[in-house]
Amino acid sequence: MNDLQFLTWVRGPGLDIAVGIFVLGVLWRLFEIYSLGRKPDLAAPRHADGASGLHTVFRRSLPPHGMLKRSPVSYIGGYIFHIGLAIVVFGFAPHILLVKNLTGVSWPGLPSQFVDLAAVVTMAAMVVVLFDRFNKPVKRFLSTFEDWFTWAVTFLPVLTGWMAVQHLLLPYTLMLALHILSVEILLVVLPFTKLFHVFTLFGSRWFNGKANAHKGVPV
């Protein structure tokens, strides 16, 4: 199989399989999670300022008092790489074209030099966050295989995509094929790992916020 055949495979059957597993996994898990339900809380509801599902959705995006100082890498690094990923994934013209082709929805792209910069910053932030996880004994203790694995499958698409654009190490065709393959691995893995927070993040915050608001506790 030559480079172009490899690229054609990842653009064809590979993408088909990956998107198939992704859609299947996402629907399965969303149905399962949201149908679980909880026992109704029969206690009389209490009220407190700032205690509601919606409050929690927003509040959890900000570090609690004093935490930014105690764990700056987690917050700042986390913010940088999440925003960077959004810029790279949704701002790069070829990516928008893929979304348009699959869903019909499109929006204007960002200049490729800016996306390039965002990719470099994203990778730097991800490396720092990884180093922090490795360096802090508590974080390292709490980390399981899944944490290292999900970091890798998130990092690889950014790295290979950036290397393809910059023509580093391998011919563009092969690097582009590897980039698409790495994204396909991410798609397959996403629904079945903690990366599923892409879909459940706000739902779970709302759920916790609402449950605690019933008890009069703003979380």
């Binding site: 690229l7 054609t8 653009r11 064809g12 059957p13 993408l15 088909d16 399989i17 998107v19 198939g20 597993i21 992704f22 859609v23 299947l24 996994g25 996402v26 629907l27 399965w28 149905f31 070829p94 990516h95 074209l97 893929l98 082709n101 699959l102 582009l176």
Partner: peptide, 18 residues
């Protein structure tokens, strides 16, 4: 180049099965 080489065939089935 960044779009599927062929139309996706499994997505519809995957939606139903999922």
């Amino acid at each position: 180049l960044s779009t599927p080489a062929n139309p996706l065939k499994l997505a519809a089935t995957a939606t139903v099965v999922g």
